[in-house]
Design a protein around this nucleic acid. Structure first.
Lengths: 219, 219
DNA sequence: GTCTATACAACGATAGAC
DNA sequence: GTCTATCGTTGTATAGAC
């Protein structure tokens, strides 16, 4: 599958290159002369395209053209379109990969696995990346749109539709609200005692509610 | 119903208050000459003090002194220290007043009332104020601290401790996470179909989980 | 020499036109 | 139903860096 390839740390160091517009010069084969940061140019181009046309509207070919490189570079650097999308989101972690890793197993305990895994990740990275995500979401409208599409796409596609056939989109939004809210309260606002509670306590408290959103009854 | 009594003097019962801390400044009695926006100055002073010393550490007297007005102005303009605190948070609504209004009644349906009331408020104000709150929380550390204290104080004091004696602080944080997360997903990110779902659907989906946080079993 | 970034070509799938 | 265009993806050869 198009999961993590070797060269793609999804967090992706900032780079924050300006809009990568391609030099339409003659592209030779082989390695280009030094200096051309293909990865960053792809990221910049992807942010423009994804924000402009959405996930389905944007195409790998156009993104690559905008970056001035071959479409195959998307696969080489990111492993596929979806990973490029999550990388363009600049999230502290790649929730798509996490979920793909955590979904297999007993569907009736998926809530526990999700909460446990996110706690592991967040406890190591700390709240700073989360705060950065929040700020960009609240500030830029494009970032909000991309994150919205991410929730609708990755959550629905990877998790909810596999365990609950009815109203997967609604369940995905509800799950997102609980996970997102937990992240804010525990890591950004640091409300006690939830901020310092051990994993077992948080899992025991939150997982049943998440499980109800996943497989429980809905009105 | 709302916050509290309008102009109730804070130290009402005990007359003969301290004459010891007389401000040596030459403040005249009666209405000051125009131009001085007492309310705004109190708000600014309150933000500094609350952010600096927390809710308990900050005193009305020091806030008033910093604003250059009499402490009685806090009662006159805001109705008390707590209302000044929530006003200084600059939240789009006053959750303290909302909760105080919604808590009385059957504790087993408190979750429904909370969700219903917040939906009413947010649907009229829209997502812009919420995004502003998010941005300030993610950006400034002082804002995060104030909001944290608000969640710990108002939620615990007004809601959870009245319906659930055991571990009220933990329950308050959990409730806050769900309500906060719902606000972000529905009004800031606008994830469909949750963003457009009618109130009955949202209440039916979220209220049971909130109710479990309020009165249900916890690990 | 090795290693890796790159370009080119082609494949299976899918959606729409006819 | 067939044909075509386009999509995402993959295999492979090549060019430069080391």
């Amino acid at each position: 599958m198009a999961a993590s390839e070797e060269h793609s740390p999804s967090g992706a160091g900032g780079a924050t290159v300006d809009a990568g517009l391609a030099d339409p010069g003659p592209r030779r084969r082989g390695r280009r002369p030094g200096g051309a940061d293909t990865r960053a140019q792809l990221l910049a181009a992807a942010r423009v395209e994804f924000a402009d046309r959405g996930y389905d509207g944007a195409t790998v070919r156009v993104i690559a053209e905008r970056a001035g490189v071959d479409p195959a570079m998307v696969n080489h650097w990111f492993g596929g379109k979806e990973s490029l999308f999550t990388a363009a989101l600049d999230l502290p972690v790649d929730p798509g990969a996490i979920l793909a890793d955590v979904v297999p197993g007993d569907p009736e305990h998926l809530g526990e696995r999700i909460v446990a895994r996110f706690l592991e990740i967040w406890d190591t990275t700390g709240g700073a990346p989360l705060a950065a995500v929040l700020q960009s979401v609240a500030g830029h409208d494009a970032a909000a749109g991309m994150l919205r599409e991410f929730v609708s796409r990755v959550l629905v596609g990877k998790v909810v539709s596999t365990v609950a056939p009815d109203r997967p989109e609604l369940r995905a939004g509800l799950c997102g609200s609980q996970v997102f809210g937990l992240a804010i309260i525990r890591y950004v606002l640091k409300v006690e005692p939830l901020a310092s509670a051990d994993h077992a306590t948080v899992i025991g408290a939150v997982a049943p509610n998440l499980q109800r959103y996943l497989t429980g009854p809905l009105p």
